[in-house]
């Protein structure tokens, strides 16, 4: 449901992450791409090349901001300095929504720069929802929270991950960035049926979907974003689209990044699952 209040009522198709190795290709060749997702933190700067490139991209393309260190699940409140920088960037990009992860990552001012998993407790539900509301109010933009891949589970958990996600987004009244690769990775690491997760998510809140590849080790899977999307993840994507309708979709490819054309081709495989805009509007 791409054009919802969680996406600023904008309809987005299939985008890819804006990455440094592709800068020159994009600026020189100006390929047709529905939209780019940027990592906000890479552009929350005061000058230099990153912002200059971003400004040139913004002249031609729609850009949506995705963050990696707001840490909605932190016990502490969101960092005000971070929020101010983020808001300044949203004014520059005119992003219709902002996304970040439902996780934690810093304690007492020390940052791990990782997306650490939440204990699925009622206390964590309340805390995360409060933090998301604060961010949403400060930014004056819709926020979508992304489910993360995880490699550990807590004794303290009182519910499943999807129950936790649903409780948080209802209390925060925010959107969901549904990462179907993360669902798959976690399902393999924690032994659950990933379709149960996809089927349980409130479809009306899904603002965006992430697809990506990962790396399988002997005893666990790592979310490495360095491979094409595998068939079981496409299957989850198909099911998510059946439930959510046409939804803004983004391929993440962050390591061992191939050519722009290869990444874009991989992303566009999603179009075969997406209803066209007219069909979606009629529905």
């Amino acid at each position: 449901m791409s054009a919802t209040r969680f996406t600023g009522h904008a309809d987005y198709g299939v985008g890819i992450g804006l990455r440094i190795p592709h800068y020159q290709h994009i600026l020189d060749r100006r390929p047709g791409v529905d939209w780019f997702e940027i990592i906000s933190e890479n552009y929350m700067l005061d000058g230099g090349q990153p912002l200059a490139v971003l400004d040139r991209i913004l002249e031609r393309y729609r850009v949506v901001q995705h963050g990696v260190s707001m840490y909605f699940g932190n016990f502490a409140r969101p960092n005000r300095g971070h929020l101010k920088k983020l808001k300044a960037l949203t004014r520059r990009t005119c992003t219709p929504w902002v996304s970040d992860h439902l996780c934690w990552g810093s304690v007492d001012g020390r940052y791990t720069h990782d997306l650490l998993p939440m204990p699925y407790t009622w206390e964590a539900v309340e805390k995360a929802a409060l933090n998301i509301r604060e961010v949403q109010d400060f930014l004056e933009l819709p926020v979508a929270v992304e489910n993360v891949s995880s490699y550990a589970e807590f004794h303290a958990s009182e519910m499943s991950e999807w129950e936790f996600l649903n409780e948080v987004v209802e209390r925060a009244d925010c959107g969901i960035l549904l990462d179907v690769n993360n669902i798959y990775v976690s399902s393999q690491n924690h032994t659950f049926d990933p379709l149960d997760y996809v089927n349980a998510v409130p479809a009306a809140r899904v603002a965006q979907i992430h697809i990506a590849g990962h790396t399988r080790h002997e005893r666990y899977i790592l979310d490495t974003h360095d491979h094409p999307v595998i068939p079981p993840v496409w299957k989850l994507y198909k099911r998510a689209i059946e439930r959510c309708g046409r939804t803004a979709t983004l391929l993440e490819w962050d390591d061992r990044i191939p050519s722009f054309d290869e990444v874009h081709r991989e992303a566009l495989k999603a179009t075969k699952y997406l209803p066209d805009e007219k069909a979606n509007a009629a529905a």
Partner: peptide
């Protein structure tokens, strides 16, 4: 050298 940036918090193997 090849410039890189924080692409995301995807992990390395």
């Amino acid at each position: 050298s090849a410039e890189t940036g924080t692409a995301s918090n995807a992990v390395g193997a």
